[in-house]
């Protein structure tokens, strides 16, 4: 890269910063995907908040408002949640799990367009009652990777017999591992309702 092109880039960057709205007080060009992971003896619950910034909302709305009627119906929300979950791979102790949508609620279209709306998804994956000992949950989120910021955290189980261990993530949190231990066989179901 020549010194001139570097200078030009500098000028462009400075111009962009000066021209950028000072009202840039919330996420614009990124889509926040914040996930909470709740494990129980018989199932996994994922809660995902997807919040697109205003300048990338169009990409999400194209997937969400399929009939382009300017409204997000309950069916469209659930359909989109199903397609999103196809991009989320989950395994427990190395065995693949199927996620199914429990609920999907979208903010009104105007809010989604302006960057203050979100889609809230709850999904479950069932499994046979787990035995005592340590288990490993692996999760990969490949939904909208070019525009997304990922957060993923385990929520505290209600059941004291279920102990959370290490959480391991890649730098961008699109890949996540949770180790947890069941300390007694009759652990009750701590899943959220």
């Amino acid at each position: 890269m020549t010194r001139r092109s570097i200078s030009l880039l500098g000028v462009l960057a400075a111009s962009w910063w000066i021209a950028a709205p000072t009202g840039w007080t919330h996420r614009l060009d990124e889509c926040l995907q914040a996930m909470r992971v709740n494990v129980a003896t018989d199932r996994l619950t994922l809660d995902l908040d997807l919040t697109p910034g205003a300048s990338v909302a169009g990409q999400v709305l194209a997937l969400l408002d399929l009939d382009a009627d300017g409204e997000i119906s309950a069916t469209e929300s659930v359909d989109y949640a199903r397609r999103l979950l196809r991009d989320v791979a989950v395994t427990l102790d190395g065995r693949g799990l199927s996620l199914h949508v429990v609920s999907a609620d979208a903010s009104p279209l105007a809010h989604l367009k302006s960057g203050d709306g979100r889609l809230r998804i709850r999904a479950h994956a069932g499994w046979d009652a787990l035995g005592t000992g340590t288990h490993v949950l692996d999760l990969t989120n490949r939904h909208l990777p070019s525009i997304s910021v990922y957060l993923v955290n385990a929520t505290k189980p209600a059941d004291p017999a279920l102990l959370l261990g290490r959480q391991v993530r890649n730098p961008h949190q699109s890949e996540y591992r949770l180790e947890f231990t069941i300390t007694r066989q009759d652990a009750t179901d701590p899943s959220p309702p």
């Binding site: 996420r27 926040l32 914040a34 910021v149 957060l151 955290n153 993530r169 730098p171 961008h172 949190q173």
Partner: peptide, 9 residues
């Protein structure tokens, strides 16, 4: 932590 926390959890 070995990963980015880009926002409040």
């Amino acid at each position: 932590l070995a990963f980015e926390m880009r926002d409040l959890a």
